[in-house]
Structures are given as structure tokens and as C-alpha cells.
């Protein structure tokens, strides 16, 4: 069987996810033995823009018209498109401009510098699936390289990519960590998708929610816990929105909590 043809592309992001692929040094030869990487601008000098792709791996978000055209072209020639990292999956940290005026945000970052490139007229950051169809998402900042390899194996074996809909707590508890809530801190692990191996909590730092919301994340309960720990509404929004404000549960956490309270209030009154 011919090796599947794979293209790896970067849009607006830090390129850290693509770098994670190169960081798979120990098995890099096994990877190129299993797949045919026809396009990978970060790692190859000769790239093929014409060949039809079995798999396209996309890093970064879409912030210009030109990128929109480019991702559509890639989609047209690709069977399976995988978004990797928070920028591609959720629009990334740069998606935070959605809560403010884009021109003001631009000025805040670039000042009065005159730009010639397309970035001179940026749009709000969009996740890849806001522009074209995406078949699988591997979130995290950066993407988890081991998860990328597992996804590759699933694709090679013709299986569905299996990401367990469990919270970071699963891995954190298995690692025998002391819960940050028990220590009086706020941790986002309770509402965040596992898969990172609870990397931050296992190294003494509370989860920042960079893998985005777990399926059926209990936002109202989390908001309640955050308030009990002394966080203001502004702090709560910052915590939720930092990496994955492209996820509606995290973008609208306070509203979700408020609505849940309103639904439960009549029942409370009856008691």
C-alpha cells in the first residue's frame, strides 16, 4: 500500500505545534517511514503544492482574506483535515480580540507602525473549522506530540481518532497529585479536556484550561468554586478565556452560570 500523502501547514500561530512534530526525534524516522510528507515548509526546502493529500495537518488560525483563500485550496485537495493546537482548534489567544474593537487591539500591539503585508487589514482570528470543514481536532498549547502520534496511528489503521471526553482531573488523580482546590487555589482541570497528562498540575502549576472545555463541562459549578476562592467576575472571564475563548462554554462561562442559577432558582424557592 502506498504511503499516505500528508501536508503540514502553519497559519497564524507561534509555529510551536509544527516544532513539536520535529521534537519527536526518537521516532521521526518511523514517522517518515509510515507517511509521505509532501509539504512541510518548516522542515523541508522542496514542497509540493499540487499533489492531492490524504491528510492535511493545520496549525494556526485564520486572520486574513489571503489565508482564507489558502486554507480553502488546501481543503479542496485534502481527504482528512486535522487541526492541531489551540490556534487552529479555537482561534488561539489572538481570538481574544473578539471581545474588543479590532482596530484598537491592533493599535495596542503594533502602535502606529505602517504595515504593507496583508496583516495591515486583519480580521478577527478564526479557528480553521469556522472557515472550512475539519475532521479532527487535537487541541492544547502547543499540541501534545504523543497525541499527534496516536492520531497518526489511528488514521493509518483506519480508525476513528480516540480522545477520551474526560477532565484533566483524571490524569492528575492518577498521577497522585494533591488537588489545587484542596490547597486553596483555583484550577481549570475540572472543566478542561484531558490528554496532556496533567502536565501543569503535575509540575506544581494549576491547569490553565489550554485544552479547551471537556464534553459536558460543569461550568456553573466551576464558576461557583472560583467565586468561593475569591475570584472576581473579571478574573473568572480571564481564566476561562485565556487560551480557548473560541469555545463557547469558556467564552460565555459567566452567562452559562447565571442561566443555570435562574433555572434552579424556582426549584429552590419551592423548597
Amino acid at each position: 500500500m502506498a504511503k499516505p500523502k500528508v501536508g503540514i501547514y502553519g497559519f497564524t500561530g507561534c509555529a510551536g505545534c509544527q516544532l513539536e512534530i520535529l521534537n519527536l526525534e526518537d521516532i521521526l524516522l518511523d514517522i517518515v517511514g509510515a507517511i509521505d510528507i509532501v509539504n512541510f515548509r518548516m522542515a523541508k526546502s522542496q514542497n509540493d503544492d499540487v499533489t492531492q493529500l490524504d491528510v492535511a495537518v493545520i496549525e494556526g488560525s485564520i486572520v486574513t482574506k489571503e489565508q482564507e483563500e489558502e486554507i480553502k485550496k488546501i481543503r479542496d485537495k485534502t481527504k482528512i483535515m486535522i487541526a492541531v493546537g489551540d490556534c487552529a482548534c479555537f482561534g488561539g489567544v489572538q481570538k481574544l480580540t473578539q471581545f474588543q474593537n479590532l482596530e484598537e487591539a491592533k493599535k495596542l500591539v503594533y502602535g502606529d507602525v505602517q504595515m504593507k503585508h496583508a496583516i495591515a487589514s486583519p480580521l478577527h482570528s478564526r479557528a480553521i473549522d469556522e472557515v472550512v470543514k475539519v475532521d479532527a481536532k487535537l487541541p492544547c498549547c502547543p499540541m501534545v506530540k504523543e497525541e499527534f502520534v496516536e492520531a497518526l496511528k489511528c488514521l493509518l489503521a483506519g480508525k476513528k481518532i480516540d480522545i477520551k471526553p474526560h477532565a484533566v482531573c483524571e490524569e492528575c488523580r492518577k498521577n497522585g497529585n494533591v488537588c489545587f482546590f484542596e490547597k486553596g487555589h483555583v484550577c481549570m482541570g475540572t472543566v478542561t479536556l484531558a490528554g496532556c497528562g496533567s502536565l501543569c498540575p503535575s509540575n506544581g502549576y494549576p491547569c490553565e484550561g489550554c485544552r479547551g472545555p471537556v464534553e459536558e463541562a460543569n461550568i456553573p459549578e466551576q464558576v461557583q468554586r472560583m467565586r468561593e476562592n475569591g475570584l472576581s467576575d473579571e478574573d473568572i472571564n480571564r481564566k476561562f478565556r485565556k487560551f480557548t475563548s473560541g469555545a463557547k462554554e469558556f467564552a460565555n462561562a459567566l452567562e452559562i452560570a447565571k442561566n443555570a442559577q435562574a433555572t434552579n432558582a424556582p426549584q429552590e424557592a419551592k423548597k
Binding site: C169, E170, R173, T190, V191, E216, N218, P220, E221
Partner: peptide, 13 residues
């Protein structure tokens, strides 16, 4: 149940 975060802590400990 409404309060449960489905984190699994209870069963792992």
C-alpha cells in the same frame, strides 16, 4: 448530580 464535575476524583481515590 448537578454539582458533579464528572472529574472522577472520588473513584480514583
Amino acid at each position: 448530580g448537578d454539582r458533579c464535575l464528572s472529574c472522577g476524583a472520588c473513584s480514583y481515590v
